[in-house]
Amino acid sequence: MAIKDPDHNTRIEKWKVFRDVCEARERLGVQDRALAVLDALLTFYPHGELDSSSGLVVFPSNAQLSVRAHGITESTLRRQLAALVEAGLILRRDSPNGKRYAHRSRDGEVEQAYGFDLTPLLARAHELAQIAQDVVAERTRFRRTKEALTICRRDVRKLISAAVEEGAPGNWGQVEAVYVDILARLPRYPERSQLELALDEMQLLRAEILNILEMQLKPENMHGNAVQDDRHIQNSNTESIYELEPSSGKEQGGNPEDERQAKSEANGGAKAKPEPIKAFPLGMVLRACPQIADYGPGGRIEN
């Protein structure tokens, strides 16, 4: 009905509509060669804008269409024209004898034409533009999800390799198996929903690996910070810290050796030298921040 009674005030730039069709081709179910044929049909329309008041029927011969469609064969041309009709992008206006031609007035104006009607492109211009926008947005979401999965996968791979090389405690073989399984379940050409599911699982795996490493480092950091805090309070307060805190090593969460060293300091003995704090393995640091090597002697960091 929209094609039969179009809005005569509607005008649209023909190549803009063509670009929208190209973006939406997968949803419309047309192939690349069909787009080449549609491009050729639009070249036979003399105006830059599709306007129903000036007639939207083009009537080239198959030979002319084949030349402008990059020399495709006549059988292929027929199939792609049928595909454009089926997709609702053009209409056939057949003449009594099946040929394509036009009746012109004495002034040369086309009064009646038989060929391919481009009115569907004008009538569906807004719809095609919306489909094209949706396709572009979906493609952007797909690309960003794929990039996020690539980055997360790279992080997990580096963390596992660094943990194994540094000898960090943990069942890294099982972690490696989970990592491989997540990637193995992805098809060769995945959809966005499949990528998002894999990304969620990979992010959870990365969080678990980081949690394992942090739990191993947490006791060392807590011990190192406690020693530093004890010394600072002793230097700034005349009262002993041990009058304010439990004296039992079990209650403090420490060990007897730490308690003996602390009591020795409180009694004026030699101050115990705190153990160095190992924040992260060297290999992990260098992989996460390779530029830091530029600040080391000779462009290397070995310890």
Rank of each mutant, 00 (worst) to 15 (best):
A2L: 06
A2Y: 02
D5W: 07
N9W: 03
T10S: 05
V21P: 05
R25F: 08
R27F: 07
G29K: 11
G29H: 11
A36N: 14
V37L: 03
T43S: 08
Y45N: 01
L50Q: 05
S52Y: 04
S61G: 13
L65E: 04
T73H: 03
S75T: 13
T76Q: 12
Q80A: 03
L84H: 08
V85C: 00
V85H: 02
L91A: 02
R93K: 13
R93I: 09
D94C: 01
V110M: 01
E111N: 03
Y114C: 00
F116R: 04
D117E: 07
L118Q: 05
R124M: 03
E127W: 11
Q130E: 09
V136S: 02
T150H: 05
C152G: 03
S161M: 10
P169G: 12
G170E: 10
G170N: 09
N171G: 03
W172T: 12
I182G: 03
I182W: 05
A184L: 04
A184D: 13
R185E: 10
P190G: 09
S193K: 07
L197Q: 08
Q203M: 13
Q203C: 07
I212L: 14
E220Q: 14
N221S: 08
A226M: 13
V227F: 08
D229G: 04
D230K: 09
S236G: 00
E239T: 08
E239F: 06
S240R: 04
I241L: 08
E243W: 08
P246S: 15
S248N: 14
S248H: 13
G249L: 04
Q252I: 12
P256S: 15
R260L: 13
A266Y: 02
K271E: 11
K273T: 13
A279W: 10
P281Q: 10
M284W: 14
V285T: 03
L286I: 07
R287N: 11
R287C: 01
Y295E: 01
P297M: 04
G298V: 03
I301R: 01
